[in-house]
């Protein structure tokens, strides 16, 4: 609210809002004069767009930090870390030119493979089912074409930053997966992924995802702050 207040032209927004209110008043005062009513409606519509334009300019400034905050929250609250004893699938997607049979897995202590790997030629994908036996940060590695690619796996009871997928470098990945190490662009692997379970938050009978609560809280506190800080939204 504070950023919005100083990033937007509050005085102009207040003036436009008063004009909108004046036109609504005109509709109520002269309901039997069609010309006046139509003109007032048109004015309301125009000023609304102008108002939105002023608001959007401030929102544009807020967009990038908001995206970063959301991405960071998403990393921590959208998935559950593994628990000791849990099994998970480590999925490696290879470049088309490589044979999937050539990929192998190297596991750190505290993890074991619980089934033979599943090779899916149609997707150029290999999947390993792995069991984590103790808490900690682990780095299982996929070895292919003489190169080793690790993927961080978190086994923990606490909230942790979880990167589900390690992919090649891209802008989208930089925003959605901040802090995650990218794979080399021309390497043999397209991605390595872990199927962390999604996290849901329960309030009473309602099970939902973190962002529903985040936005509900953000709107409620935003409106409260709007009144306190006398911000024109």
């Amino acid at each position: 609210m504070l950023v919005f207040r100083y990033a937007s032209n509050q005085r102009t927004m207040r003036r436009i809002k008063k004009r909108i209110q004046a036109n609504i008043l005109a509709v109520r005062l002269f309901p039997d004069q069609l010309g006046v009513v139509l003109h007032a409606y048109f004015q309301v519509l125009c000023y609304t767009f102008v108002y939105l334009g002023y608001a959007l300019r401030a929102l544009a400034i807020l967009l990038l930090p908001m995206l970063i905050v959301l991405a960071q929250l998403n990393l921590r609250f959208s998935r559950l870390p593994l628990q000791p004893g849990d099994s998970f699938i480590l999925q490696a997607k290879l470049m088309r030119s490589l044979r999937i049979e050539s990929a192998s897995l190297r596991l750190p202590r505290g993890m074991k493979v619980t089934a033979p790997p599943v090779h899916i030629p149609a997707l150029n994908e290999v999947d390993w089912q792995i069991q984590a036996n103790e808490n900690g940060d682990f780095w299982p590695a996929v070895v292919i074409a003489g190169q080793t690619f690790t993927k961080r796996v978190v086994v923990s009871d606490d909230i942790a930053s979880l990167h589900a997928k390690r992919v090649q470098k891209s802008l989208l990945n930089w925003i959605s997966n901040p802090g995650g190490r990218a794979l080399p662009p021309a390497g043999p692997l397209r991605s390595i992924g872990i199927d962390y379970a999604p996290r849901t938050i329960q309030v009473g009978p309602l099970h939902t995802e973190w962002w529903v609560f985040f936005f509900a809280f953000a709107f409620a506190s935003g409106f409260a702050a709007k009144v306190c800080l006398r911000v024109e939204l």
Partner: peptide
């Protein structure tokens, strides 16, 4: 269900679940 070409194992993808079964 994806079947491994040689190993007696399969990957099952059902809704948001992915599981490997021997």
């Amino acid at each position: 269900v994806w079947l491994d070409p040689t190993n007696p194992v399969a990957k099952i993808i059902i809704q948001r679940h992915e599981l490997i079964l021997r």
